[in-house]
């Protein structure tokens, strides 16, 4: 599979800090790459450098095998971008906004009309075609924002935190739309600090912190970087301390916390941890109401690697 984007040793410095520090990665054709990281980690800066909107101090950027420049129109015609800020004209209706931005890529009026209608359908704005942006809710506005960025059916799409401050219905709609775009053959770079979205959408993920890559790979590969295997929560009322001390001695147990009648156990690598726990609870006739088990999340990986949460 060929690389659509190749970033090598990208560095972007401001006076006081390095926003992007010697970043290198590649994006393969047809995949959805997630760029994950807290605020200020360099996600948007990286995107802006790749799109030739920002100067950078060092490094090289190639898209479709060619050097990316501000006037590389042959590359730009196949790129679609959905920025974090809603970028639409207040004075134009939904239809006109999409038509305008699509028109910067597609000259043919008939083709453009077809594309605009399809984009409106993709984001579910058929009922709102003649509405003006100020009449739309936040979620609908985001959908319009996306439609403006992808109406021209680009091969490479950048989505920079497209679901910020969006209602759940709109968010699901957006995520479904993105999957559809991928199914149609687009390569997608998706930046977010919502790990759940990355887990649903992305084939590969890169985690950034302070301008550097701290982890990359598929979801499973990145999660495997976490030194914990499993997290278990048990609702057990008035659990005696002696039981807690016993559980602490179990094999593979990393940490045990009992607070507000919830027993929380973190397991390091190992199998059948939950079975062992359940057997013990049964043996000791410990009453419990609910029990949860979850695998490590990307947030856990990030927390381990940096000591911070992804969403601060």
């Amino acid at each position: 599979m060929k690389n659509v984007i190749e970033v090598k040793n990208l560095t972007k410095e401001y006076k006081e800090l390095k926003a992007v520090d010697n970043l290198s990665f590649a994006v393969q054709e047809g995949e959805i790459l997630g760029l994950l990281g807290p605020n200020g980690s360099g996600k948007s800066t990286t995107i802006n450098c790749i799109l030739s909107l920002l100067n950078f101090s060092e490094g090289s950027i190639k898209i479709f095998g060619k050097e990316m420049k501000p006037d590389a129109y042959d590359i730009k015609k196949d790129i679609g971008v959905v920025f974090q800020d809603v970028a639409v004209f207040e004075e134009l209706s939904v239809y006109d906004n999409i038509d305008y931005f699509c028109g910067l890529y597609i000259k043919d009026k008939r083709v453009r009309k077809k594309y605009v209608e399809e984009a409106i359908q993709l984001v579910g704005l058929e009922e709102f075609k003649n509405f003006f942006p100020k009449k739309l809710s936040g979620g609908l506005l985001r959908r319009l924002n996306i439609a403006c960025g992808i109406a021209h059916k680009p091969k490479l799409i950048f989505l920079d935190e497209p679901t910020v401050a969006v209602d759940p219905q709109s968010r699901n709609n957006i995520l479904d739309g993105i999957k559809m775009l991928r199914d149609r053959g687009a390569t997608i770079i998706y930046t977010t600090h919502y790990m759940e979205e990355v887990e649903i959408l992305c084939d590969r993920v890169i985690i950034l912190d302070k301008g550097k890559i701290i982890a990359s790979g598929t979801n499973a590969e990145v999660k495997a970087l976490a030194s914990i295997e499993e997290k278990v929560s048990v609702e057990a009322i008035d659990l005696d301390k002696k039981y807690i001390d016993e559980i602490k001695k179990f094999k593979n147990v990393d940490e045990v916390i009992y607070n507000n009648n919830i027993l929380f156990i973190r397991y390091k690598k190992g199998k059948n941890n939950l079975d062992t726990l359940l057997d013990y609870l049964k043996e000791e006739h410990i009453k419990y109401n609910k029990i949860y088990s979850e695998r490590p999340t990307l947030n856990d990986v990030f927390l381990e690697l940096t000591g911070k949460e992804l969403r601060d």
């Binding site: 030739s52 909107l53 129109y73 015609k77 920025f83 800020d85 970028a87 931005f101």
Partner: peptide, 17 residues
């Protein structure tokens, strides 16, 4: 202009002179 408005940014990445 990309540094003046979000619309400017969008327009700047388009393949239009």
């Amino acid at each position: 202009l990309a540094n003046m408005s979000s619309n400017g940014k969008r327009v700047s990445v388009a393949p239009t002179s």
